[in-house]
Design a protein around this nucleic acid. Structure first.
Length: 478
RNA sequence: GCCCCCAUCGUCUAGUGGCCUAGGACUCCAGCCUUUCACGCUGGCAACACCGGUUCGAACCCGGUUGGGGGUACCA
């Protein structure tokens, strides 16, 4: 179907948290639509009424909004279109392309077991396909419930030209008549999905590889409905570190968890795009605009990819550093508020501290551990303090730093640096020997933002007090 | 059982017959820079699953083996 306008869709089933696999599928559809100037349709496939929840719908909407994935039509819900599916099914029955099946679960199980034993494919025999009117009436009189099955022509094969996988072929004899309407009249996924795609005039079906083998059944619906067929693009799966399908036991898998840990939406788009797709042999860090400009289905991979948490973390650091300072502050504040951090109550202070930690963080959630000492009393890390206490030069370092700082007229990062370096010259102590204890004194840790900036932000009085506090350890323990 | 898909460093990948003694990135290691960490820089470890075939020549093409994944529901 060449030169059709590009219309793609993202059809999650709202049965749980939207995880990174679905997010990647949504992203690819979005990138493809935006790149081509096409439309993205959002639809919730909630025909599994037992598992679908409104909460999941809302969560999915929130995630998409946060990810910056917008859509042009919808969201619709399949549960709102039941009459449409039922009508389509009865139309197919009238046309002889579908039929009522009265087989009971027990009968079906027996059939399946027999096939299992004889090493046959586990498909429905089609027993009810040629029921006479009398037999049908008898079953009805018996009070048997029925489902509607689609007639699958066992002759020949079904072939698709998948954009990422190339030619894929199925033997039609191995398909079997599948259920399109359950006994309660509700549609199955195999029916509602292609039907909706037909009516939404979807041009490209971009989805996970787990749906590849359902393609011949859905194509059968297209044919039964006399509809033109879409192009398919089946994306490789995302796996956990153990090469098994990514799931909760591998750690965070819901997109919101990443957001809450301080990952940028920009990072997630960049990283997710890279599992199963690449631009060239050396580009890794990309803005979303670049992604949209560069994304093509032709460069999507065929082999499954392992979700690499370490690389995601690194990439987030890259994007965090690329942020303009004001935007970094905004993101930081938003994160602190969302995570319920007490630091969120001091936005002005956060804005002062943010610049000196921006280049250090890989996750926004690390902000507290880096900067908390600038918001309240330092929490002393035993190991860091221990190292200072064991250092024979520490008392001298602290004392000379103290003396140098005390003389300062102007309390700025620059003047502080000047004074402390002068102290190094005076005492003959190396910078690292002299600065180390001071850092621990004011921050409580050996890992902290820049020392001079930190002292400047802390203020003279508080800085001196903290240096004295640590200094006292020597007189007590000495 | 049956069907489908996949197979390059630990991981993400580049590579569509000679440019490959296989390139980039993450991780890890060493070093430099440096007030620690981080950043940055330099260097290092590390892969074409296996067996056949096609070809003057295969990571790239074909077949098989093995391994992994998916499907086989009145789930989606």
């Amino acid at each position: 179907m060449p030169d059709q306008p590009v219309r793609v869709r993202f059809p999650p089933s709202p049965t749980g948290l939207l995880h990174v696999g679905s997010a990647r599928t949504a992203l690819y559809n979005w990138l493809f639509a935006r790149h081509a100037g096409g439309k993205l349709v959002l639809r919730f496939e909630d025909t599994d009424r037992a598992r679908s929840t409104d909460a999941a719908v809302e969560q999915a909407l929130r995630v998409l909004e946060w990810l910056g994935i917008d859509w042009d039509e919808g969201p619709s819900r399949q549960t709102e279109r039941y009459p449409r599916y039922a009508a389509a099914a009865s139309g197919l029955i009238d046309a002889g392309r579908a039929y009522r099946c009265y087989c009971t679960a027990k009968e079906l199980d027996a059939e399946r077991e027999a096939r299992q034993r004889s090493q046959q494919p586990l498909i429905y025999s089609g027993r009810c396909r040629r029921l006479s009117d009398e037999q049908r009436a008898a079953y009805e009189a018996e009070g048997r419930s029925s489902v509607v099955r689609l007639v699958m022509d066992p002759a020949g094969e079904t072939v698709i030209d998948d954009i990422v996988r190339g030619t894929v072929t199925w033997d039609n004899a191995l398909q079997g008549d599948f259920i399109v309407l359950r006994s309660d009249g509700s549609p199955t996924y195999q029916f509602a999905n292609p039907l909706d795609d037909i009516e939404a005039e979807i041009s490209h079906v971009i989805r996970g590889e787990d749906l590849l083998s359902s393609t011949p059944r859905q194509l059968a619906v297209y044919r039964a409905m006399g509809a033109g067929e879409p192009r398919f693009a089946h994306l490789p799966m995302i796996l956990g570190p153990d090469k098994k399908r990514l799931s909760k036991r591998h750690g965070a898998v819901s997109v919101e968890e990443f957001r809450d840990r301080g990952y940028l939406a920009e990072t997630m788009r960049n990283y997710l795009a890279l599992i199963g797709w690449s631009f060239d042999d050396k580009t890794t860090v990309m803005t979303t605009a670049e992604l949209v400009e560069r994304f093509t289905l032709e460069r999507v991979n065929t082999s499954p990819g392992v979700f690499d948490f370490a690389k995601l973390e690194w990439l987030n650091g890259e994007h965090l550093r690329m942020l303009a300072p004001e935007r970094f502050c905004d993101e930081l504040l938003e994160h602190l508020e969302r995570s319920g951090s007490p630091l969120a109550a001091q936005p002005e202070r956060v804005r002062e501290v943010a610049p000196i930690v921006q280049e250090k963080l890989r996750e926004l959630s690390q902000f507290e551990s880096y900067g908390a000492f600038l918001f309240g009393p330092a929490v002393y890390d035993d190991e860091a303090v221990g190292r200072v206490v064991d250092d024979p030069d520490a008392p001298r370092a602290l004392e000379s730093a103290r003396a140098a700082l005390e003389r300062l007229v102007e309390w700025t990062a620059a003047s502080i640096e000047e004074a402390l370096r002068a102290a190094c010259d005076e005492t003959g102590l190396k910078p690292r020997v002299l600065f180390g204890p001071v850092r621990v004194a004011i921050s409580g840790r050996s890992v902290a933002p820049g020392l001079f900036e930190s002292l400047a932000l802390l203020g003279r009085d508080e800085s001196m007090a903290r240096i004295d506090t640590l200094g006292r350890r020597f007189t007590l323990e000495g």
